[in-house]
Write a protein that binds this DNA or RNA. Structure first.
Lengths: 339, 339
DNA sequence: TCTTCAATAGGAAACGTTTCCATGGTTTTG
DNA sequence: CAAAACCATGGAAACGTTTCCTATTGAAGA
């Protein structure tokens, strides 16, 4: 009935007997308006049931209250990170728009997604750090961008997870159990988590003055396929006792490894010791349970959002805030045996 | 340098020596423009590197190319469904905006999320179907809404998963193995998947003329806490042999159950047989592997998106398209024993 | 050849805000 | 007490489109 016409700022102005600008100032909490008038305006707003039109607001102000998030949805970490991001953005009054870059043609996906759209900021978790085309594309965008655990030139990191200390601790743990032949299966050095983990792995060996078996550091992709292939190649060395432990750097690789071990009737920790990244239902409920490095995924999501929003609201700070360093945790369970 | 000013439709018009309306018509593929002119306009667009301003377009056209998706992010099904939705929306030129309603205050979350925002449509996966407040809120919204596997008055279902036949098949399977005391642990009857599953469960018993043990149908929430509590109460009956199989209706309940079984040194399938909903890394990699009912999550996401977009683009059809019926699959693995 | 009609084109108005500028009133200052 | 400074206020202009109305053109019909 009475909602046949949309209520606009003009109606509010008329109802409160003030000018357009005054209503706008009241809404935006701007200065240059007396408390008395502001109160009157809010009364009219309430009485008329007025809600600002966000599109019209965006049009004038170039603020969209909208954040784009690029990530590989297939990673188990995704859900919890997304939950953290959504939680925090909601608190701060922003919307989360999601783009999956789990499949091959990342640049194409990114470009069609961004095409003509308006966002206030971007959270980026790219599958590799050295893609020139992508780097160029994102450099050409003039809004705040932060990475989630990636080192990309010209794009500040929102958060940075401290893999180094836990990986070193985990490696020391294996060495102290008597393992010498530890195979490390990860992504590529072009991605921060893997790169840092490899460095820590090597340093752990060095600190114990044990030569690090470089040929057991297997770089590939963070997929179960790569996990399967890698472990398959290792089977002879496992059987000969040359390799007695496997350290996988993400859940997908871990799952691939586990599959092949099963197929070959190899049991852990009897035949092989296991450590992996990412603590989730699988590592907890497997029997025996699996020793892991845990990242606080929810907190990572919240943290990265907070930094991005700060950059958006204070553009002068852009790139000047040190990324939050997120601690990790080494959790010993039952998947490694004493040699 | 030359990008100090934004290129607008006016610049294109000037460059192509045509009027504003003509450029607009060209962009939107509208009629009333000759092929020759259209070509010239497109040349200018390309030459100037013009991209339409989506905000200004939205302002005039009331189209936003933006879909809101409400779901409990903590459910394992979420990732794959989201992947399917994002994939399809991307194809159709829409953006996916995500809102987590996994925590308690659903209505509050929904309202702050929607507050003043503009979407073309909504995909809804509510934690219960009988929340009056929510129902009222969504009824007051005048854009297309579809549910994901929920029966909610006045809101058409986008898809509907066929639980009935697989649950019946699964129950028959257990009965044929000699199990009589099967405990069914699910959510509440106020949610379609659980309701349909209970019906199928009962019918399976009836078809075999075996009295259905109504007291073993446990309704609660789809959480691991409820799973723990339910199984805990069942322990005496398991030990006495009164209950020999457990059928859990979602992954979170299943995980809770598994935890308690472990804590009590009960092994499956030796001490208890298990069947659960949702096929994922855990059910595949557990040893023994777990017999499951699988839903094609990716396809569910794609399907529901397609229907929603159809409703958006042809408003006359709203509510008139029968929801896609999504089949499920019963996969027998090693978690049930022959009594 | 003149009239009619359809197709194409141009551009003003409108969408609902924010921002800026001008105005008038009040307070401060010397 | 006059001048200066300040503040609240109203409203026009602008943001970049789409839509509608009007004008022009050329073809078809008589």
């Amino acid at each position: 009935m009475d909602d046949k016409k949309k209520i606009t700022i003009k109606d509010v102005a008329k109802h409160a007997c003030v000018g357009l600008g005054t209503v706008s100032r009241a809404i935006n909490g701007a200065s240059g308006i007396s408390p008395k008038t502001r109160k009157r305006v809010f009364e009219s707003i309430k009485e008329l049931g007025y809600t600002p039109d966000v599109i019209a607001q965006s049009m004038r102000s170039n603020k969209y209250k909208n954040i784009a998030f690029f990530i590989d949805i297939s990673n188990v970490a995704f859900s919890k990170i997304a939950k953290g991001i959504q939680y925090e953005l909601d608190n701060l009054g922003y919307i989360l728009s999601l783009c999956d870059i789990g499949d091959k043609n990342v640049i194409e996906k990114v470009m069609t997604f961004m095409n003509g759209r308006k966002f206030d900021g971007i959270i980026l978790s790219l599958p590799r750090e050295d893609d020139q085309e992508l780097h160029q594309f994102f450099s050409s965008i003039k809004i705040p961008i932060v990475t989630l655990d990636r080192d990309i030139p010209d794009i500040p990191a929102g958060i940075t997870t401290d893999y180094f200390s836990s990986v070193k601790k985990a490696t020391h743990y294996l060495l102290s159990l008597g393992h010498k032949g530890i195979a490390l299966i990860g992504g590529s050095r072009h991605i921060r988590p893997t790169r840092v983990s490899i460095d820590a792995f090597q340093e752990a060996y060095n600190e114990k003055s044990i030569p690090c078996p470089e040929d057991l550091i297997l770089e590939g992709q963070l997929t179960s396929e790569f996990g399967r292939r890698a472990i398959y190649d290792l089977l002879p060395k496992i059987r000969s006792g040359q390799v007695s432990a496997i350290f996988t750097l993400n859940n997908q690789i871990f799952q691939g490894v586990l599959h092949v071990l099963r197929e070959n009737n190899l049991e852990y920790p009897k035949d092989i010791s296991l450590i992996t990244f990412e603590d989730y239902e699988l590592t907890q409920l497997l029997n025996p349970s699996v020793t892991v490095i845990r990242r606080p995924l929810l907190e990572m999501g919240k943290s990265v959002s907070r930094i991005l929003i700060k950059y958006i609201e204070e553009p002068d700070l852009y790139g000047k805030i040190a990324p939050s360093v997120i601690p990790t945790e080494f959790i010993i369970r039952d998947s490694c045996k004493f040699l």
